[in-house]
Amino acid sequence: MMMSTGLNTGRAALFFGPGKPFRLEELPVPDPEPGAVVMRVTRANICGSDLHIWRGDGSFAAGGRDDGRIIGHEMTGVVHALGEDVTTDWAGAPLAPGDRIVCQYFRACGRCRPCLRGRQEACINATASFAGRPTDFPHFRGAFAEYFYVRPNMAVFRVPDAVNDATAAGVNCALSQMMMAFERADIRLGDRVVIQGAGGLGLYATALARESGASQVVVVDGVAERLELARQMGADEVVDFTEFESPAASAKHVRALTAGGGDQVFELVGRPGVIEHGLQMVSPGGRYIEMGTVYTGTTSAIDAGQLVMRNITLQAVSFYDARSMAKALDFLARHAGSLPIVGGSAPYRLEDIDRAFEEAQQGRVARASLVMEG
């Protein structure tokens, strides 16, 4: 086991459980193992799944720890230190201290049954790297800190010069996740795509649907700022569900807009209660892609007969492979300057993390982002 020298420290915002404030602590910056990288975080977004943890949704209600832990996962940074034999990123580009990078926040084991079947995004051991006390090596296991420890099996890529930090921060979760989802859902030229939720996932889904050749892209949300961003991302129609008397009424409106429903409908809200009405937006023979509800312990009412009689396919997607991250960076480099920034509309300092979560929860910002001092 590698040890930390203790000669350098970095701040981390420790999370102790739902309803409790974060606490900033100094932790030792570790020396990297062979094949590992220590990244100095420059920007970290508050993702929807972080809000689930913070609120204690479903199984996350039992996520508190007396010694705290570092949460957060959507980030970018620069190389602080390279482990032995690390000279390039996963695409073969030279890598040196100071280079801007993005990395996977989880680690596929490569040995479990899903991994051996070529489904690394379904690795049963992917979250094992999250485990451990902040006082134990490698200390920095989450994004809401000044450093992050990139383990040897975590894909790491240099960020193209044309892509700024505010944009790059969304690569290792929202955009890579959507790249994986679009491949799995087999989006085709001419498809009608409906997107529930215009957070980070939903905004990227909008842009990818447009690039994939969708004939119509409809985005449903209840926050005006998000809906405007969705339009800028390429949505043909936006639907503010707060303007309707019921979810069923807004679903009916979406069916009317799409002449019978979407060929592909994405759930990117993160609340199981929206699934029932999301399924009502799917056309016969269409597909419903479930991605937003990442916590267990809750259920949604589903009319199974409707699924059968309307030939609806259910598809769930979590995590992504290294190829998806490479494709995400290429997408951002090709569209640099032509798409709005998804991850930087509301920057906060690390010491303001409690306020950042509160304002993200209230829907006052499209995407809260923590900016670290370099």
Rank of each mutant, 00 (worst) to 15 (best):
residue 4 S to G: 04
residue 9 T to L: 06
residue 10 G to E: 06
residue 11 R to H: 11
residue 16 F to K: 09
residue 18 P to I: 03
residue 20 K to V: 11
residue 21 P to F: 05
residue 21 P to K: 06
residue 25 E to G: 06
residue 29 V to Q: 06
residue 33 E to W: 01
residue 37 V to T: 15
residue 38 V to E: 12
residue 38 V to G: 09
residue 40 R to Q: 14
residue 42 T to N: 04
residue 43 R to H: 15
residue 49 S to W: 00
residue 56 G to N: 10
residue 57 D to G: 00
residue 59 S to E: 14
residue 63 G to K: 00
residue 65 R to Q: 11
residue 68 G to R: 12
residue 69 R to M: 11
residue 70 I to E: 09
residue 70 I to L: 08
residue 74 E to H: 07
residue 83 G to L: 11
residue 84 E to M: 02
residue 85 D to E: 13
residue 89 D to N: 01
residue 93 A to T: 13
residue 93 A to R: 15
residue 94 P to L: 03
residue 98 G to Y: 07
residue 99 D to W: 04
residue 100 R to I: 07
residue 100 R to M: 07
residue 101 I to W: 11
residue 107 R to I: 00
residue 108 A to L: 02
residue 108 A to W: 03
residue 110 G to R: 05
residue 113 R to N: 10
residue 114 P to I: 10
residue 115 C to I: 13
residue 115 C to G: 05
residue 118 G to M: 01
residue 121 E to Q: 14
residue 122 A to M: 14
residue 124 I to M: 09
residue 126 A to K: 08
residue 127 T to N: 04
residue 128 A to K: 14
residue 130 F to H: 14
residue 133 R to F: 02
residue 136 D to Y: 07
residue 138 P to M: 08
residue 138 P to K: 12
residue 143 A to P: 11
residue 144 F to R: 10
residue 145 A to D: 14
residue 148 F to Y: 15
residue 149 Y to T: 07
residue 151 R to K: 08
residue 154 M to K: 12
residue 157 F to M: 10
residue 162 A to K: 09
residue 163 V to C: 06
residue 172 N to K: 00
residue 177 Q to N: 12
residue 179 M to F: 05
residue 185 A to K: 10
residue 186 D to M: 01
residue 188 R to C: 02
residue 189 L to F: 14
residue 191 D to K: 05
residue 192 R to W: 09
residue 194 V to S: 06
residue 194 V to A: 05
residue 196 Q to F: 11
residue 199 G to N: 11
residue 200 G to R: 13
residue 202 G to L: 12
residue 203 L to P: 04
residue 213 G to F: 08
residue 214 A to Y: 09
residue 220 V to R: 15
residue 222 G to T: 13
residue 223 V to R: 13
residue 225 E to A: 13
residue 226 R to G: 07
residue 230 A to E: 02
residue 232 Q to R: 14
residue 233 M to H: 06
residue 235 A to C: 04
residue 235 A to W: 10
residue 240 D to V: 07
residue 240 D to E: 08
residue 240 D to L: 04
residue 242 T to L: 07
residue 248 A to S: 09
residue 249 A to F: 00
residue 252 K to Q: 11
residue 252 K to H: 11
residue 252 K to M: 08
residue 252 K to A: 13
residue 260 G to N: 13
residue 268 L to V: 15
residue 268 L to S: 14
residue 272 P to R: 03
residue 277 H to M: 00
residue 280 Q to N: 04
residue 282 V to N: 06
residue 284 P to M: 05
residue 290 E to K: 03
residue 291 M to V: 00
residue 295 Y to F: 09
residue 299 T to N: 08
residue 304 A to P: 07
residue 305 G to D: 13
residue 308 V to S: 05
residue 312 I to D: 01
residue 313 T to A: 12
residue 313 T to C: 06
residue 314 L to M: 11
residue 318 S to P: 01
residue 320 Y to K: 08
residue 320 Y to V: 05
residue 320 Y to Q: 01
residue 321 D to Y: 03
residue 323 R to G: 06
residue 326 A to D: 06
residue 327 K to P: 00
residue 328 A to I: 02
residue 330 D to H: 14
residue 338 S to I: 04
residue 339 L to W: 02
residue 342 V to T: 03
residue 343 G to L: 01
residue 345 S to Q: 15
residue 346 A to N: 12
residue 346 A to M: 12
residue 351 E to A: 06
residue 353 I to Q: 04
residue 353 I to W: 05
residue 354 D to E: 01
residue 362 Q to W: 07
residue 365 V to T: 14
residue 365 V to G: 02
residue 367 R to Q: 09
residue 372 M to A: 01
residue 372 M to N: 07
residue 373 E to W: 04
residue 373 E to P: 01
residue 374 G to Q: 11
